[in-house]
Amino acid sequence: MFEARLGQATILKKILDAIKDLLNEGTFDCSDSGIQLQAMDNSHVSLVSLTLRSDGFDKFRCDRNLSMGMNLGSMAKILKCANNEDNVTIKAQDNADTVTIMFESANQEKVSDYGMKLMNLDQEHLGIPETDYSCVVRMPAMEFARICRDLAQFSESVVICCTKEGVKFSASGDVGTANIKLAQTGNVDKEEEAVIIEMQEPVTLTFACRYLNAFTKATPLSTQVQLSMCADVPLVVEYRINELGHIRYYLAPKIED
């Protein structure tokens, strides 16, 4: 028996919004410790890794490890039927071929349940090596989304250059060139507005705007985003989900031939 309950459907809606543009389907691996999903996009350029800890749920029961392959488009349709404040419960029997998603209004007067067929997805799991990143940037998630959106107008690629002075995002194309520099915040009044850079070594990497923009669909989940970079390895874009877990996107760099 698997049962996981969240106080507000809005969190699950936001999580799905954050992954459904990159992934058509995904396997939710459920265990005592929580729910995990790892999947590459169709082009195998990016990897999504979602972790939801069991202690972040209002109720969590997982008697036996369970892998639930789900069509994320179908799941999105079901979640559209929930009000943001509804309680949401995801339930499945051991070895079941369906999952039940149940919504309850705050006053318990409306209860709806939706059944969805599970899929047997033959997804390969990748081992993500421990990496000592040369630069780790924390910045407001909205600012990062804005920069990615703005630079996508100029080029398919964005160059991220991080030094101890700050982080620079650049793009150039037919229209011209664009450079956006963010300095590390001097006095941090509000932590959520801070730009914090931890640098071991300066790093310059090139990434596809299209994917960065897809990652920013996670912006409603977190006030801050963390970018971890190291020469010649994938960028990690991490959004923490308050008291529940995190979503990490890995993006393979573009390299000079």
Partner: peptide, 14 residues
Amino acid sequence: NVRQTTIGSYFNKI
């Protein structure tokens, strides 16, 4: 020339 790499060239299957 800039070439897009894939995740599979950095992370191994387990």
